[in-house]
Amino acid sequence: MKLPGSLVAGALAGLVIGAGATAVVLTMRGGAPDASMAGPGGPGGGRGGFMPAVSMVAAEEASVGRTLDVIGEGRALKSVALTSEATGNVVEVNIAPGAKVSEGDVLLRLDERQQRIALERARAQYPIAKENAERYADLKETEAASALEAEAAYNEYKTIEADLRAAQYALQQRAIRAPFDGVIGLTEIEAGDYLRAGDQVTTLDDTSSIVVEFAIPQEAARAVEIGQKVTAGLASSGGGTHEGRVTAIDSRVNPETRTLKIEATFDNEDGAMLPGAVFAVSTTSKGEPAVSVPGLAIQWDRNGPYVWKRGEDGRAERADVSIIQRTDNIVLVRGAVEPGDMIVWEGSDRVRAGFPLPGDASQEDAREGAAAVGASGTGAAAGGGGD
């Protein structure tokens, strides 16, 4: 029976395609395997035959300290309430609330006419009394004057000298000057007002630095030391924080509250911190040594947490760790990890023991990588997908 031409052509085409496919398969099976395409036990070591895409970071030295979060109150480095030392009418007021003044600036002046008259009188009498005392001293040496006369002249000279100093001091009391550089406060006094000795004029604060006072429980006394870093931010808002140092620690515990008073000083040249404000204060002690790794580097399985580190042969090694403390996107650990070890922090879930890992990254690149993880918010989840 004669077959149709179309059927014969289709059969031939099928034979050609099948032969080609068979040749390809035989070629792949017969060829030597590529190292980069090897299975899990081969040289490539990647899942499905490929090296996993990972990023490395250097484990860093850290310490496990005790963190204290308390509330503190700020005050100026130096603060004073200026009061009048004398009584009289106000003739001059140079107080602009909130303005900066320098040491020695005259802030307020009282009527000083009477004091100037007394000073001029004492100045006029002083040289005469001094010359008289010297003349009688010379006369006493030649026995032209008695010792009693010389002593009387000397006493008169010393009395007038004291009157001169008293007149100068009384004149100085008529002016209220800034005792140090600072920011002037509010006042209700105006020229023409009558002041009595002891009346408060205004306040003066040196706000170049702010001292924040706070108290810690007596049990935490050893967790704070002079020079320790302290951060403070306004307790009532989400504003930025300021960094300072512990500058004073009280010598005794308050017997009523069982707390220890601490003072921390903050640079305030920009004027962002105000005296009297309430701050949220945080400080962490140095503590025991530990190792810092990104949170994303931590993996978990039934045996607990671990990380993948690059061994001496360049392949992945499991390093069991114990988590000591978490701070934002960083985890402090102890275990089979040392500062400087290269740790897998991105792609850890794709790594297996013996997989080849990239070469050493620079410390700068490692820090930039860890910062990128923290910025994306993934570093806070310290438990990635483990086995």
Rank of each mutant, 00 (worst) to 15 (best):
T203G: 07
A118L: 08
V64W: 01
V80G: 01
G240N: 15
L12F: 12
D34Y: 12
P40I: 09
D181C: 04
A53T: 04
D181V: 07
A371N: 11
V307N: 03
A371Q: 14
D349L: 11
L186K: 12
E213K: 06
V337R: 00
A53K: 02
D365Y: 11
Y154W: 07
T259Y: 07
A150I: 05
Y306V: 00
V278L: 10
Q125L: 12
G44T: 05
E213P: 01
P358G: 08
D105T: 06
R174F: 12
G39L: 13
V212L: 05
A13N: 08
Q299C: 09
S251M: 14
A223E: 12
G385K: 13
N329R: 04
I216V: 14
R318D: 05
N329W: 08
E141V: 13
T142F: 13
A366K: 02
G98H: 06
E213D: 14
P289N: 13
A32M: 13
A178S: 09
D313R: 07
E60L: 03
I95F: 11
G39F: 10
L108Y: 09
L186C: 05
F214K: 03
S362P: 03
D250R: 04
R326V: 12
Y154R: 03
L234W: 06
P52V: 04
E92H: 08
A170I: 07
M342A: 08
E188L: 08
G46T: 09
L332W: 02
A124V: 13
L77P: 00
A76V: 01
P275Q: 00
Q299A: 09
T159K: 13
S55F: 02
A152W: 03
D105N: 08
E213V: 05
K2E: 14
Q228H: 05
T241Q: 05
E243A: 13
L7D: 14
G104E: 11
G185S: 12
L260A: 00
D69A: 06
I160K: 03
E317D: 15
I189L: 15
G31N: 10
K100C: 01
V344H: 00
G335C: 10
V351L: 02
L186E: 15
